[in-house]
Computed example of a mutant assay.
Amino acid sequence: MVKPIQKDKELITDINSTINKTEGFRAWWLGQSGFLIQYQGKHLLFDPYLSDSLSKKYAQTDKPHTRISERVVEPSMLNMVDVVTSSHNHTDHLDAETLVPIFENNPSIKFIIPEANRTFVCERLKCETDFPIGLNDLQSVDIEGFKITGVPAAHNSIERDEAGNLKFMGFIVSFGTYKIYHSGDTLWYDGIVEVLKDFKVDLAFLPINGNKPERRVAGNLNFEEAARLGKEIGAKLTIPHHYDLFEFNTENPENFIQKAEEYGINYKILQLGECIEVF
Rank of each mutant, 00 (worst) to 15 (best):
R160K: 15
E254H: 11
D202E: 03
A204L: 00
L237T: 10
A59G: 01
N16R: 15
H93R: 08
S174G: 04
V173W: 13
K167W: 08
F168L: 07
S174H: 06
I102N: 07
P48R: 08
T22Q: 14
E224W: 14
N117F: 03
W29F: 11
V2Y: 14
Q32R: 14
H155I: 00
T250A: 01
E128Y: 08
A154R: 07
L221R: 09
A116L: 11
S51P: 05
P101K: 00
H241C: 14
H90F: 09
R228T: 07
N89V: 14
Y263T: 10
G234N: 08
F256M: 06
D244W: 09
T91S: 11
P114K: 08
F199Y: 15
N16L: 15
L187W: 03
L206S: 04
F199W: 15
M77K: 06
C127V: 15
T18W: 10
L270W: 10
M1K: 01
S86F: 05
I113S: 07
L187F: 08
F146Q: 12
G219N: 08
G145F: 09
N106R: 13
K7S: 13
Q60H: 14
L203C: 11
E115H: 08
I265Y: 00
I172A: 11
F35G: 13
L125E: 00
G273M: 05
G170H: 12
F279R: 13
E274D: 06
G219A: 05
K3C: 01
S17H: 01
D92C: 06
P152A: 01
E214W: 04
R160G: 04
E128T: 10
L203P: 02
P213L: 06
Q139L: 02
E224C: 13
T18H: 14
L94W: 01
L138K: 12
Q60P: 02
K212Y: 14
S86P: 01
I276Q: 01
A116V: 12
I208N: 09
W188Y: 00
V201W: 12
N165T: 00
V195F: 05
H90S: 11
P4L: 07
